[in-house]
Simulated assay, not measured.
Amino acid sequence: MEIKWKIKPFEALTAHEVYDLLKLRSEIFVVEQNCVYLDPDGKDKLALHLIGEYDGKVVAYSRLFDAGISFDYASIGRVVVDANYRDKKWGHDLMREAIAGIKVNFGTDKITIGAQLYLKKFYESHGFVPTSEMYLEDDIPHIEMQRT
C-alpha cells in the first residue's frame, strides 16, 4: 500500500483535484471537528498543494507556503488524512513529504506551523518545538511550533 505524492501550484490543479481536496478538508475540519468556518481563506492561490493519492482517491493533503505568507518562515497548513486511512499512519508520510517539499521548493528548513494542540507530540516527532502559548483558532486550542 503506497501513496502517490504530487505537489502542484493552484493554477495546475484540475477541477477534480480542487473538488477532492476541498471535500477532504471539509469532511475533517468542518464536519468531523464540528467547526463552522470558511475553509477557502484566500490562501489556496498562494500555496503549493501536496496531494497524496491512494487507489485514485485523495487520502492525504497539506498546503505549503513560502516565508511571509502565513508566518515569517515557510509554513505547512491544512494537514489532513482521510479518517478511513488514519490506521495506516500516513500522517507521518505526509509530514515527511511536506517538509521535503518546503526544502525543495523554497530552499529552507525553517518552518512554522499553527498546530492543533492535541497533535503537539505528533509534530514534535517531526522536529517541531512549541514557540507560543496555547491560543484559540475557530474555538480549537492551537499552538505555534517551529522547525529550524
Rank of each mutant, 00 (worst) to 15 (best):
residue 14 T to K: 09
residue 147 R to H: 13
residue 135 Y to G: 06
residue 7 I to G: 04
residue 21 L to K: 04
residue 131 T to P: 01
residue 107 G to S: 02
residue 50 L to Y: 10
residue 103 K to W: 00
residue 27 E to M: 11
residue 70 S to T: 03
residue 83 A to H: 09
residue 70 S to R: 14
residue 44 D to I: 10
residue 49 H to W: 11
residue 100 A to Y: 00
residue 144 E to D: 15
residue 58 V to R: 15
residue 23 K to A: 09
residue 69 I to Y: 05
residue 38 L to P: 00
residue 83 A to V: 11
residue 143 I to T: 11
residue 25 R to I: 04
residue 119 L to C: 11
residue 13 L to Y: 08
residue 45 K to C: 11
residue 71 F to Y: 09
residue 66 D to W: 00
residue 21 L to E: 02
residue 50 L to H: 07
residue 142 H to R: 15
residue 54 Y to C: 08
residue 122 F to V: 13
residue 105 N to Y: 01
residue 89 K to E: 04
residue 31 V to F: 08
residue 40 P to G: 01
residue 114 G to M: 01
residue 28 I to D: 08
residue 8 K to F: 03
residue 114 G to S: 12
residue 140 I to G: 13
residue 85 Y to R: 05
residue 102 I to F: 00
residue 79 V to F: 04
residue 69 I to L: 07
residue 55 D to Y: 09
residue 54 Y to M: 11
residue 3 I to S: 03
residue 48 L to R: 10
residue 96 R to K: 13
residue 19 Y to V: 03
residue 62 S to K: 10
residue 14 T to L: 02
residue 145 M to L: 09
residue 54 Y to R: 13
residue 82 D to F: 06
residue 16 H to C: 01
residue 42 G to Y: 06
residue 74 A to T: 06
residue 68 G to W: 03
residue 101 G to K: 01
residue 16 H to S: 09
residue 26 S to M: 07
residue 33 Q to F: 04
residue 94 L to P: 05
residue 76 I to D: 02
residue 133 E to S: 12
residue 120 K to H: 09
residue 103 K to P: 00
residue 98 A to C: 05
residue 46 L to T: 11
residue 65 F to V: 09
residue 27 E to R: 07
residue 27 E to D: 15
residue 72 D to M: 04
residue 94 L to R: 09
residue 147 R to Y: 13
residue 135 Y to N: 08
residue 3 I to Y: 01
